[in-house]
Amino acid sequence: MMSKARFRGFVTFSVFAAMLITNDWGKGFTGQILLFNTGTVPIENWSLAFDFDRDLSSFWNADVVRKENGRYIIRNRGYNADIRPGGYVEIGFSGAPGRVERPPTFVRPATREKTAKPSEYRVDVRVTSDWGEALNGEMTVTNLANRPLEDWTLEFGYDRDIERFWTADIVGRDAGRYVVRNAGYNAVIGPGQSVKLGFRAKPGGEVRPPSDVVLKTFYVTKGFERTETLRLEIETRDEGFVLSWSDLDDAWNYHILR
């Protein structure tokens, strides 16, 4: 048997979001929030802000950043921080009272990209072993700010050919300039804390500090900025469900099958 429910979502920044009420018994309800990555690059350090006329008391697979007068900001729990292209995350919740008829409003992402100020971090390099043809080194990134550096990416120039990092991923290199991304488990650098990035480079010899260093982070805002949202319908079927939404003159459909 097919059932239909109204939802509200958005398509922006390569993200599609929808809310589904799975059980409503009058005094309370449970449901899911689905976040889809419709783009070609990972969604990093995801978060979601929305307004809702019900008290959401518990979440699964997400943490509450802020809750105030029917406004919510939720975020990932670390292990599910990034959404690969074509992938999605499921967030469970419970709330009260039941008999939910109106969907959330002003649904929007709450994650922002920020370039850290040079005064907010320090990068040090030391050689741990050198045998002439190549060397092993350690790059230490220290957080000097009073806030966490979340989901960081480090860009820098270096006068050696870096073959690999053991505790980070090289996601870009061009003419001696590198882009290095956290390895997931070390994505957050707390205030006053450091991460050590072991690497191998060649040739060996005297090593200069990295040049033109830029540290970028994806952080979750605590503000309640608002944007327009889209209306969404969902049809559940035995083999999965179909999402349909509209954006001005364009119509979209998204099929999710088991």
Rank of each mutant, 00 (worst) to 15 (best):
E235N: 04
S246D: 15
L243V: 15
I234D: 03
L248C: 07
Y219P: 00
D247I: 08
G223W: 13
R237K: 13
R226F: 03
K222T: 14
R237W: 06
L248M: 12
V242L: 14
D238W: 03
T221E: 13
T229M: 06
E239V: 05
V220F: 06
D247C: 07
F241E: 02
E225I: 09
F224Q: 02
T229F: 06
K222E: 15
E225S: 13
S244M: 06
R226L: 06
T227E: 06
L232F: 15
R231N: 13
T236G: 01
F241D: 01
T221C: 05
V220A: 07
D247F: 13
W245N: 01
T229V: 02
K222Q: 12
D247P: 00
S244Y: 03
K222S: 14
E233R: 05
S246P: 00
L243D: 01
T229D: 13
L230M: 15
E228S: 11
G223F: 12
V242W: 03
T227Y: 09
T221V: 09
D238V: 10
T221K: 07
T227W: 03
I234K: 09
D247Y: 14
V242K: 11
E225L: 11
L232C: 12
R226C: 00
D247S: 13
E235A: 09
S244V: 04
T221L: 08
E239Y: 07
L248W: 10
E235W: 05
T236M: 02
V242I: 13
S246Q: 15
R231G: 09
L232Q: 04
G240W: 10
E235Y: 06
E225Q: 10
T236D: 02
V220L: 08
D238H: 10
F241I: 07
